[in-house]
């Protein structure tokens, strides 16, 4: 026997508007009974979250902290982390933590020291950058220069660095210069684990001859 035959449902559909309003009202009450406490909890959690963020930030050795519209502004922050032989230390003149996502910090006038492995390190300086603590990525853009311990200087417009694997990727033309010559490429992609540097989008490379190098020394 089917639970409810079409006939019976039809009859209940014919209730008066008053009954309908009543049912809607009771449903609204039921919703509110759950919603109100929840929002209370949410606000409380927000407060706790903010305090947690403050504690977390203070553990990072930050300068004084002030709250601004677009986020928490920190003066002279230093962020660092390490994983095995790879380590990074990022310092900036100003860091603004986004209120929308406390893990994302926008940085201004950044200096980053990245140790790729005991023999290789890179120093990056940039005017603007974004440090995502969740993904542990650092994107630097605007007036960027990278010097690599292997004696290379890299001029590029932006670079995205995965601080966990040391992989670097750029999207705009880059040039790498050293006394041995230089490379200009449309794009660079460096995968530290596999030890592969990929230049794509057209490359031009000049290898200095031994004579030229002597002149430069």
């Amino acid at each position: 026997m089917t639970a409810a035959s079409p006939m019976t449902r039809h009859r209940t559909g014919g209730e008066t508007s008053a009954q309908k309003r009543a049912r809607r009202h009771s449903r609204w009450v039921r919703v509110l009974r759950v919603l109100l406490p929840l929002t209370g909890l949410a606000i409380l959690a927000g407060m706790v979250g903010l305090i947690a963020v403050f504690n977390y930030l203070s553990s990072l050795g930050l300068g004084n902290i002030s709250l601004s519209t677009d986020g928490l502004v920190m003066d002279r922050p230093e962020l660092s982390g390490h994983d095995g032989e790879r380590s990074y230390k990022v310092s900036a003149v100003r860091a603004i933590q986004r209120l929308s996502d406390p893990r994302v910090i926008d940085l201004e006038t950044i200096h980053a020291d990245i140790v790729l492995n005991p023999s290789q390190s890179a120093q990056l300086t940039a005017l603007k950058g974004t440090y995502d603590n969740g993904e542990e990525t650092l994107t630097l853009y605007d007036g960027l220069q990278v010097s690599w311990s292997e004696g290379y200087t890299i001029d590029l417009t932006d670079v995205a660095i995965d601080l966990k694997t040391g992989a670097m990727r750029t999207s705009d033309p880059i040039s790498i210069r050293s006394d041995k010559g230089h490379i200009r490429a449309g794009q660079l992609d460096y995968d530290q684990d596999k030890g592969i540097v990929r230049f794509t989008d057209g490359i031009r490379m000049v290898l200095n001859s031994a004579l030229q190098e002597k002149e430069q020394e």
Partner: peptide
């Protein structure tokens, strides 16, 4: 002769540190 620089142009270059090779 190593008096003159070598210039290389290509669409892409992949340098493999592990096998000390560069593929244009």
């Amino acid at each position: 002769n190593d008096a003159e620089p070598i210039q290389i142009e290509a669409e892409s270059l992949e340098v493999q540190d592990k096998s000390n090779s560069a593929t244009f």
